[in-house]
Nucleic acid binder design. Structure first.
Ligand SMILES: [Mn+2]
Ligand SMILES: [Mn+2]
Ligand SMILES: [Zn+2]
Ligand SMILES: [Zn+2]
Lengths: 149, 149
DNA sequence: TATAGAATGCAACTTTGTTGCAAAATACTT
DNA sequence: AAGTATTTTGCAACAAAGTTGCATTCTATA
């Protein structure tokens, strides 16, 4: 029990730190949504968060996700099925002002989970003359490790 | 006038050929939507097509796009802003039964257009052990050639 | 603790996507 | 060319997703 409280406190401290670092006021919905991301092993859709944070209004969740995106706390993952998934940015992302995610994302066709493959970086490409690159996304569909076993 | 009719006829013949090749019955909505894709230089959202084919019901457009996807006549392009864009598959894609698009897509942050960079192929990557790849998408955001000038 | 400013919840609304079914169009047979 | 089976379409009704304005509540700070 003491142990659990300690964990809870640690998580609480972490979420408050993230919010402070981004100059955001500390509110219970923001902390809750950050906690959800921190304990999730996969990227989450808006709907996933709605289910895990039922006490908060749908609109609040929309606005909170947008705020987190603006501050670079989370990033979006484009998918082929018209659902945006959100995931926490790595420490690098969060601390640096400008967002620069550089890993590949994986969508499992079987379990439906979306994973950040933090260790697989996106290879460089050469664009035709006249094009300037700002962001790059690489998304792979297939079967994930867990589902293969 | 004769010239225009000839162009029209050529486009008509082309759309009918595509439909026949995919064993689809030839209907005016399917021809119209194919014509839109053939004369478009960019990928299109459902909404774009709705505006360009006002005479047809929204539901018909949804179903037609789905049919074209199923037959591999068009492919989707995932975007970070929760809108799916559709584009004609290259000849290779259409003729071969199985879909294997392999080019990078470009989203211009200024004009909003989505372009198939047919000449830029997606580089290979190595996934962690246990993952199997089925499809791969690479989407680049930035400023397109036209907007740079 | 008082107060200005920010965030939230609610209601109302728009947009996007889905489904069932009758009517219309197409492909196919004769 | 006409008739018929099958497919496609439009409409209506609905469900889900996303947006906006505004009054209330909460947070930061003096
Ligand atoms: Mn990620
Ligand atoms: Mn393409
Ligand atoms: Zn899986
Ligand atoms: Zn452009």
């Amino acid at each position: 029990m003491i142990f659990l409280n300690s964990l809870q406190n640690k998580m609480g401290a972490q979420t408050e730190l993230i919010l402070k670092t981004s100059s955001l006021s500390i509110t219970s919905s923001r902390k809750k949504i950050l906690e959800i991301f921190l304990s999730a092993s996969t990227a989450l859709a808006h709907q996933d968060i709605e289910k895990l944070a039922e006490q908060y209004d749908r609109v609040t969740i929309y606005r909170t996700l947008q705020t987190f995106l603006d501050r670079g706390i989370i990033h979006t993952i484009p998918t082929t099925d018209n659902t945006i998934k959100y995931a926490l940015c790595s420490d690098d992302c969060i601390t640096s002002g400008h967002h620069h995610d550089n890993h590949v994302h994986f969508l499992c066709d079987q379990c439906g989970r979306t994973l950040c493959l933090d260790d697989v970086s996106i290879p460089a490409i050469t664009l035709p003359k006249g094009y300037s690159m700002k962001e790059i996304n690489m998304v792979v569909n297939g079967i994930c490790k867990t589902c293969m076993e």
